[in-house]
Amino acid sequence: MMILIDSGNSRIKLGTFSETAHAARLAAQAVSPDGAAIAAAPIGRRDTESAAFDNTDIAAVDAWLAALPVRPLGAIGVNVAGDKQGDAIAAAFARQGVTVRWLRAQGEAYGLTNRYAQPQQLGADRWASLVGVTAHQDFGHGPFLLACFGTATTLDTVGPDNVFEGGMILPGPALMKTSLVSGTANLPLADGAVVDFPTDTHQAIASGVAAAQAGALMRQWLAGCRHYGQPPAVFVAGGGWPEVADETRRLLAEAAAVIHCSVAPIEMLEHPVLDGLAHIAATQAAEVS
């Protein structure tokens, strides 16, 4: 069993990957009743539920590791919270006799080509997420846009050739709101409805934040439509998604009507970083065996 680690700016997310359980599940799904090959469960899907902790709560990581029924063989992960945080997590794992290997973005690996001018400058969490989404598309795929609404919002586009074209970063919904509190004298931490014409400060802030997030996603979706000649599928993740979901769906539908195309249903991903790490773990295990 391998431990998967997503060390982010706000939370530490952990999962496990069992090579044995994964191989058995793939074998059971590899052939349809008529004997023809069918799509198995996407490679690298995790075999147990994940856990999430505040990124200051290293003691909770210790306790989670100590409670595992099977001692892990190792751990792989991505860390975007700085070297100090990475060292603290690695030390917690070391206390349980487990070595952590931190991954960085690569130019070309695990089926994904990274077009960043300096490939390792791409956030390791973004890279792992894109690896996972790319790997989980059965029998090829069209272009897709992955939008993650966390502490930061990231909007990344991958083509049908599995090439990551590039992406955007902006403050996440919560960070946008708190920046107004800390950067102004009179604005509150907003908790208002998203409406077309706000009539109080809470509505004004909530509507502005949702419009900014949804508008950025719509911009990248339209850029994908122009670049690929077809609308990208949209995948979303992150704790900030619920507060911008309605505005995003509305703006996408309006944009699609203007350019006379359809919008596929947006698909919510629970833990795309961990799914990507599981795919990497499965691929590495297959290369060794």
Rank of each mutant, 00 (worst) to 15 (best):
M1H: 08
I5P: 00
S7Q: 09
S7Y: 06
G8V: 10
I12E: 13
L14I: 14
T16W: 02
T16I: 08
A21W: 07
L26N: 03
L26T: 08
A28N: 05
S32C: 14
A40F: 00
P42C: 08
I43C: 15
G44T: 03
G44V: 02
R45E: 15
A51G: 03
A52Y: 04
F53S: 05
D54H: 02
N55H: 08
D57L: 03
A59E: 15
A59C: 04
A59F: 06
D62P: 06
A63Q: 15
W64C: 07
A66R: 14
L68I: 03
L68H: 05
V70L: 09
P72F: 03
I76L: 15
V78A: 04
N79G: 09
V80H: 12
G82W: 15
D83M: 12
K84M: 13
K84F: 13
Q85G: 11
Q85T: 14
G86P: 08
A90L: 08
A90W: 09
F93C: 14
F93G: 04
A94Y: 09
G97D: 06
L103V: 11
L103T: 13
R104C: 11
A105D: 11
Q106W: 06
Q106P: 06
G107S: 13
Y110A: 08
G111T: 11
T113K: 05
N114L: 01
Q118K: 02
Q121D: 14
L122F: 02
A124D: 07
D125G: 03
D125Y: 11
W127D: 01
A128L: 03
G132H: 02
G132E: 00
T134S: 00
D138N: 00
D138A: 13
G140R: 10
G140P: 06
H141R: 05
G142P: 00
F144N: 00
L146I: 00
C148R: 04
F149D: 11
T153V: 12
D156I: 04
T157F: 01
G159L: 04
P160D: 01
P160G: 14
N162E: 05
E165K: 01
G167F: 02
G167W: 00
G172P: 13
G172I: 11
P173A: 06
L175K: 03
T178G: 06
V194F: 10
F197H: 07
P198L: 10
T199C: 14
D200T: 01
D200Y: 07
Q203C: 04
V209Y: 05
A210P: 02
A210Q: 03
G215N: 08
A216D: 12
M218F: 08
M218P: 01
L222T: 00
L222I: 06
A223Y: 11
H227T: 05
G229S: 10
Q230F: 04
A233N: 13
G239M: 10
G239A: 12
G239W: 08
G240S: 14
P242C: 09
P242Y: 06
E243G: 07
V244K: 10
D246I: 12
L251Q: 14
L252E: 11
E254Y: 03
A256I: 06
A257S: 13
V258P: 02
I259R: 14
C261F: 12
S262F: 07
P265G: 09
E267P: 02
M268K: 04
V273M: 05
V273C: 01
L274K: 10
G276F: 01
H279N: 08
Q284H: 07
Q284N: 13
A285W: 03
